[in-house]
Design a protein around this nucleic acid. Structure first.
Length: 507
RNA sequence: GGCCCGUUCGUCUAAGGGUUAGGACACCACCCUUUCACGGUGGUGAUACGAGUUCGAAUCUCGUACGGGCUACCA
């Protein structure tokens, strides 16, 4: 009974990886880690027409960024390769032929035109999309309707054909889903799915069963959109390997957008990322923004995804990956779909930015600043700056506004916010402040504040009137952390330089 | 249309027969803050509907409504 836990993520390399895909990876990963099992990635590239250059590499880059690297894959090696279905072609036909031999599948010679005609002919109001099923198959061109000789002749001539499963009539196929409990289907209502395509490639249905068996998968997890085809897979397991060998299934709820299943379109339409990382379609050059580039931390991304359809029963919402591994359990995964809320996603990131040490944020922020023309020569200063401003940064790019002025004098000064209330007294005050600061021996926020207050008092000025001008001199605008903390990090020379150059603009 | 899955605040969710139905995001108010945030306190706000089982139902059963998924030689 205690088979080693082995789970897989099986994407097809057709484009960027979206939220739902990454969450499927996550739940697989957590389950494997929790149970000391293996997590592998198998590339489902059986549809040559949909193959997209670069998509496979993108998937692995994404997993790496998320910190969800597989134990076995095309890139990580393993004993159950190849991990790309296009390279496993040989075995699939053999299984399909075996099914034909046993009367559980059949050759079908219908052309795409034949199929189109069938759909037109049988289309009605009650049945808007006719299926190739037990009511139809005897009216089509296949090894069930043709004589054995004819079938052999067509095969010998190399006639293009597919192999379809022959769904039994009046049987109930049921299985226990780890999330939904017992799910059952009437076989008469399921169509004869193609198992092996005319090009010799398997469809997903055959491939998933053959490969899950070959790779000794113990638990097969996937999105809910697969639930309707589960009976086909159950039957294939029964016919080919026996139900005892079959992995346990779990179908994850869908992640929904504002209208339905979350799509790339939703992201563009509502202004939030849908893919994990930036993805550029090599054909159209269309760029779809990713969470990474939007400024999400991988820890936050994983965290928010984990909570979209699962929770540990308590009120904790911020989890490290290690905590997730410890607490994850499949029976606490929901059965209902979850609508993605970008505001909440940002909240998760903000929590993680606050929680992260300045040291761990440093390299990301440094890159970002440098990309925006801010050269960082002093890493220690950068770390101090990050520590000072991170509480007010939700996404990584927020650090640009919040910390640029520490390294480069502001290009624009919000003169209008100061000028109307500027006067001779303030002019003189700041001139005196400069003289005072020039003589300062200790340069820290506390003394700078005390000195300012003392000078203000002797000049009969309220500190309140002076803080905003002072801030704008140093920062350029009405934002940022405490003024004296800023001045401390700026240093004596730079603080004085900014005050004196700003005075001229106000006067 | 058929099949399958689902339904607790606007959103993510807790409560596995007995709670004033709890928390978080968002929103609002107040406090803190001589900027903006953070933080703190409080507030608005939900068991889709109808039957049944039960002393007692958000919770179990059935029906209805609504939502979603699938219905390709795509995955």
């Amino acid at each position: 009974m205690s088979k080693k836990v082995r789970v897989r993520f099986a994407p097809s390399p057709t484009g960027g990886l979206h939220l739902g895909g990454v969450r499927t990876v996550l739940y697989n990963y957590l389950f494997a880690r929790k149970h000391g099992g293996d997590f592998l990635v198998r590339i489902e590239d059986t549809d040559q027409s949909r193959y997209v250059q670069g998509a496979e590499e993108y998937i692995f880059d994404t997993l790496k960024w998320c910190g969800l690297e597989p134990d076995e894959s095309v890139q990580h090696g393993g004993d159950y390769g190849p991990y790309r279905q296009s390279e496993r072609k040989a075995s699939y036909r053999q299984y399909a032929e075996q099914l034909v031999k046993n009367g559980q599948a059949y050759y079908a010679f219908d052309t795409p035109e034949d199929l189109e005609k069938m759909r037109q002919d049988f289309k009605s109001e009650q049945n808007p999309s006719p299926q190739y099923d037990h009511t139809i198959r005897m009216k089509m061109r296949n090894s069930l309707t043709l004589s054995a000789d004819e079938t052999q002749k067509l095969l010998a001539e190399g006639t293009r054909h597919v192999i379809r499963i022959k769904m039994p009539e009046n049987e109930t196929v049921s299985f226990t889903d780890m999330i939904r409990g017992e799910v059952s289907f009437e076989t008469s209502l399921v169509d004869d799915k193609v198992l092996l395509k005319a090009d010799g490639m398997p469809t997903y249905h055959l491939a998933v069963v053959a490969d899950d068996h070959a790779m000794k998968i113990s638990h097969a997890f996937r999105g809910e959109e697969w639930l309707p085809s589960a009976p086909v897979h159950i039957l294939l397991w029964k016919y080919l390997f026996g139900l005892d060998e079959m992995p346990q299934w779990a179908h994850f709820p869908l992640i929904l957008g504002p209208t339905g299943k979350l799509s790339k379109r939703d992201g563009a339409k509502y202004g939030f990322p849908v893919f994990a990382m930036n993805w550029t379609d090599p054909k159209t050059n269309e760029l779809t923004e990713g969470f990474k580039e939007k400024g999400f931390l991988p820890e936050a991304f994983i965290n928010l995804l984990a909570l979209l359809g699962w929770n540990d029963g308590g009120e904790q919402e911020i989890f490290t990956k290690e905590e997730l591994i410890e607490k994850f359990s499949m029976d606490r995964v929901h059965s209902a779909g979850a609508k993605f809320d970008y505001e909440k996603a940002k909240w998760f990131n903000h929590e993680w930015v606050k929680k992260s040490g300045a040291g761990s944020l440093k390299s990301g922020v440094k890159t970002l600043l440098e990309e925006n023309g801010i050269a960082i020569s002093n890493d220690d200063l950068l770390e101090k700056v990050i520590g000072l401003v991170k509480d007010r940064c939700t996404l990584l790019p927020d650090f640009i506004q919040q910390s640029s002025f520490f390294f480069k004098a502001p290009e624009t000064i919000d003169v209008d916010a100061v000028k109307p209330k500027w006067n001779e007294a303030k002019q003189l005050f700041f001139a005196e402040l400069i003289r005072n600061y020039e003589l300062a021996i200790e340069w820290n926020a506390h003394t700078l504040e005390n000195n300012l207050k003392e000078i203000a008092a002797t000049n009969n000025l309220k500190p309140g009137e002076l803080m905003l001008p002072f801030r704008i001199m140093l920062v350029g605008g009405k934002f940022g952390p405490g003024v004296f903390e800023i001045a401390e990090l700026l240093g004596k020379e730079e603080t004085i330089r900014r005050i004196s150059s700003a005075i001229k603009m106000f006067g």
